[in-house]
Design a protein around this nucleic acid. Structure first.
Lengths: 113, 113
DNA sequence: TGCAAATATACGAATATTTGCAAAAAAAGC
DNA sequence: GCTTTTTTTGCAAATATTCGTATATTTGCA
């Protein structure tokens, strides 16, 4: 269970690699750090949802939800699936879920209070 | 190992509580989603560092580092400790570490490639 | 073809974030 | 008190994000 530790005795290449990873991670975190997007992702953890469903679930306007989904889509966090007129979104992989689990544990544990 | 799932059959109070938590979580994630701050936090996982040390470690200007630290301080993620002229910063609690562990696992696992 | 439903996009305004630079505190030593 | 070192703060410019409104696009159906 080692940590993402950076030490002075690492080679420049190693440091550089880590910085690149940091850029990627930063983008990912920026994507999920928006309250609306965070909520959307939370809802998607329990399974596919249509845009309209999400619109109701997070009480936001259609265009706003679509924009947030667009951002998440570009960032590779969610994937759309068309079924007739409606488009269903789901998590692209378990990355968001993995992070959300921890975030939930840290901030939402005592929801019943 | 339940997830931060929101379902339609929750009471408004429950939903509301979760939204508040989401706001908090969002602020936290915004704080760590900045590349420089992310690097700073990574360094702090391995222990206390002075501002000057961090300045060298992430190759940023002194004022910039200080500002990022200021942001992290206001957000409650780090805590300063003065020792003579220098000020040492450390993680305020294990929240950043907990999230960073996952982020590291997701994005930095294959650093040696 | 024409129309309605579901979703996406474009664009401007309002906000927020980030950065760089200069200046100001704070502490230590002389 | 003065100087040096370390750190913080203030301010303005540059960027980025977000929101709202309006406008496409796509699909299904009559």
């Amino acid at each position: 269970m080692t940590l993402p530790v950076l030490t002075d005795d690492m080679s420049d290449e190693e440091i550089d690699a880590i910085v690149n990873k940091a850029t990627t991670a930063s983008g990912f975190l920026k994507a999920i750090s928006h309250e609306g997007r965070l909520m959307i992702l939370c809802h998607l953890v329990s399974g596919e949802k249509s845009v309209t469903e999400l619109e109701d679930l997070i009480a936001a306007r259609q265009a706003a939800v679509s924009q947030q989904l667009s951002r998440l889509r570009l960032e590779g966090l969610v994937v759309p699936r068309r079924d007739g007129k409606t488009i269903y979104y789901r998590l692209a992989d378990d990355k968001p879920k993995r992070v959300l689990e921890v975030v939930y544990d840290l901030f939402c544990k005592d929801v019943n209070t």
